[in-house]
Design a protein around this nucleic acid. Structure first.
Lengths: 221, 221
DNA sequence: TTTTACATTTTTGAATGCAAAATTTGCGAT
DNA sequence: ATCGCAAATTTTGCATTCAAAAATGTAAAA
């Protein structure tokens, strides 16, 4: 299925920041690069627009969605609510095996933290949150969560992190794992809300919305 | 913008149940009816597929999404989480004017309840929940909520309602309005979760997934 | 020199055409 | 009469083409 493939590839291009937020998406160029015609490309762009990753301007083409400060805050709030819900549901349904897998991922993430490897830490962090959402056993929730996090992802990866905040995040993750193991839904929901709130503060403090991806890649490096 | 228009019209057709869940969507026919070619129609179908209203089967065309029992339960859970989040946020941000508007809508809804007008009652009910979401002042949340509720909508409107449940729902709504007026975020969140849980039980009890829209219209009438 | 009007080019949006896949139809064998 | 298989038709997916709108460039006038 060409169309699905195309959506995935363009999404990856956008999430990698290869086309920075606010930049025009050159149809012609992408067609050549992906070796497809404009029809499936345009279909893919409309799907991505529905997902919120692309802005469509009438007769003026499409742009990589540029999120304002407020947009980021809003998305984080939704993300927070979804993760809290996922945590509660997960506590009711999660299996011992799933808890074990999350514990393993947690240990790995802590290892990356000790190594000071921020990129790998973020990867592990994301894996844990996705595992919790997955453990909720609710595909509709998983889908909505994926859509919301996709829009935030770039910002989340590039926020500069102070040692204090990083240490706090790790501590919170320990509490999250603990609540999961105790299957304490209400407690987990509470922790997840606090966790997200702290993450949100990071992002806003970084003033992400004023920058664009070209800066961000530099910041990562 | 032809494409936007088309998405809206097909969405309306699907939400009206004119094309029942699980039924094939005849491209050719819709093209003639909307007086457009296949290109914009197919773009619209892909957008609706991304929204979850349409299922795309490779080389087999598109169908109006048919939700299983589990799908419905899942969507209700997400809806519940989103409304709870919206309630909490609304309590922080809602203006007196907005509370007044919701109170008015509430009174109107209660009037329809007293008249035994289920259809109008549902309409008012939906307006209140949408107003709360709107009062959260979070467009991202509003968008996600709209997408999720669109998928549930048909089921929500057609569930048979016992007098007991109906009375309970009205009581809960009074508690909701009360918590809003007190700006009691935690309390509102709690009530909304209970409210949704009750609604969910109705839907599941009705065994919606086993029916299709042609039955449902009869049930309404 | 700057500005505005106009022509050219580019790009977008939609229609049509074409090849591949699936469904339906018809025919023959059991 | 029914089942199986193959040809024909329909339908899907993508490429190409065409028309309209916007961007660009140029030239003339102030």
């Amino acid at each position: 299925m060409l169309h699905e493939e195309v959506v995935g590839r363009i999404r990856a291009i956008l999430l990698d920041g290869e086309i920075p937020p606010g930049a025009r998406i050159p149809e012609r160029e992408l067609c050549e690069r992906l070796q497809i015609s404009r029809t499936p490309l345009r279909e893919a762009l409309k799907v991505l627009a529905a997902e919120g990753l692309v802005q469509l301007l009438p007769h003026r083409g499409s742009r990589a969605a540029k999120l304002t400060d407020k947009d980021m805050r809003d998305l984080f709030e939704v993300c927070q609510g979804l993760e809290a819900l996922a945590g509660e549901l997960a506590c009711e349904r999660i299996s011992d095996a799933e808890i074990g897998a999350i514990a393993t991922a947690h240990d790995e993430m802590v290892r990356h933290y000790r190594d000071g490897d921020l990129i790998q830490y973020y990867r592990g962090n994301r894996a844990i949150h996705e595992a919790i959402v997955s453990a909720a056993g609710n595909p509709a929730l998983t889908g909505v969560y994926a859509s919301v996090t996709a829009r935030i992802r770039r910002a989340r990866y590039v926020t500069p992190m102070t040692p204090q905040r990083w240490a706090l995040a790790v501590k919170e993750h320990e509490a999250i794992l603990n609540a999961l193991q105790r299957r304490d839904g209400a407690g987990l929901s509470h922790i997840l809300r606090a966790h997200l709130r702290h993450k949100r503060e990071e992002v806003l403090q970084a003033g992400f919305a004023e920058t664009d991806a070209s800066d961000l890649t530099l910041r990562i490096a």
